[in-house]
């Protein structure tokens, strides 16, 4: 399955889909299946928003895409390479072309913001320290944090932390950028700022961007296409327009923000406890939490 040829250096164009998922299934150690066979492609330069409620498996999907979670079956192709079937060296090579912004930022608390952004450059390039410093300033400037090099993450506000995390994700000029809940825990103004930042990155660098979120307003604004994940199944996929016009009951419920009928929810919860890995029918209403 594996292609032996190495990725050409300098971010040479790759013509196929940047990300391709085929019948992806993920189970945690206990055996409970989180994702029940998901397939979709993400093209170069596209912004794909993965929507889903709490416990829908969307975060697991993201973790699998960046290789933090191993699929139990199915394939994840990143830039034409099957992520599960390549050597560690090849995987690391691909990872230097991915950037990930974690929900809480995941900045290293013992390092300054500047050192955080510099870290991937120091680890993976042979750049002079002075060049690294210039790059760090550029990246921080890009996310609107110029002058914050010497601050510790604990001295930053939530929104600034998230921006610093984006700067770190951008350090290696990634081709694919992943965002886990970019606006979680931020006030609407700051959250809008992050959305704006994502749009700018997309416009300026033609980056492929994957965003996991449950914020509809943000999703409508930034998405080229969206997928809706419900209880580990891909329920619907399409452009913003297509999703908004969808007649699918689950899509309608999610987009129209209709609460769960209480009884159905409890029954559903019981069902989830008793049949952990059962695939649920399309028509049934109910969220896993």
């Amino acid at each position: 399955m594996t292609e032996k040829n190495k990725i050409p250096p300098g971010g040479a164009e790759f013509s196929g889909p940047m990300i391709s998922i085929r019948d992806l299934r993920v189970s945690y150690d206990g055996g409970r299946e989180i994702l029940h066979g998901i397939s979709f492609d993400v093209q170069r330069g596209e912004t794909m928003v993965i929507l889903g409620g709490s416990g829908s498996g969307k975060s697991t999907l993201l973790r699998t895409l960046v290789g933090l979670q191993k699929p139990s079956s199915g394939e994840v192709w990143i830039r034409g390479k099957n992520f599960a079937a390549i050597s560690n060296e090849e995987r690391d090579e691909i990872r230097t072309r991915l950037g990930m912004s974690f929900q809480g930022g995941a900045l290293f608390g013992s390092m300054t913001v500047g050192e955080n952004v510099a870290l991937p450059l120091q680890e993976h390039t042979k750049l002079e320290q002075s060049t690294v410093e210039i790059m760090v300033r550029l990246k921080l400037d890009q996310v609107g944090l110029s002058g914050f090099e010497d601050f510790l993450p604990s001295q930053l506000s939530g929104g600034m932390k998230k921006r610093a995390a984006v700067a770190r994700a951008l350090a290696m000029d990634p081709e694919i950028l992943f965002f886990d809940e970019p606006s979680a825990g931020l006030d609407p103004i700051i959250a809008a700022g992050i959305d704006q930042l994502i749009l700018e990155l997309k416009k300026a660098f033609r980056m492929t961007i994957i965003v996991v979120t449950h914020e509809l307003a943000s999703a409508y604004l930034i998405a080229d296409r969206m997928v809706l994940i419900n209880k580990g199944d891909l329920v619907a996929m399409g452009s913003v327009q297509e999703m908004q016009n969808s007649k699918h009951p689950r899509v309608r419920q999610f987009l129209d923000r209709v609460p769960e009928p209480a009884v159905a929810q409890e029954l559903d919860y019981l069902q989830m406890l008793t049949e952990p890995s059962s695939k649920q029918g399309e028509g049934r209403q109910g969220k896993s939490r």
């Binding site: 973790r63 960046v66 290789g67 933090l68 995987r91 690391d92 090579e93 990872r95 230097t96 991915l98 990930m100 974690f102 929900q103 809480g104 995941a106 900045l107 290293f108 608390g109 870290l119 991937p120 680890e123 993976h124 290696m172």
Partner: peptide, 13 residues
């Protein structure tokens, strides 16, 4: 807990 270990891994460190 703060996903910093995950962050290291995604940075191929």
């Amino acid at each position: 807990v703060t996903e910093e270990i995950d962050a290291l891994e995604t940075m191929a460190i």
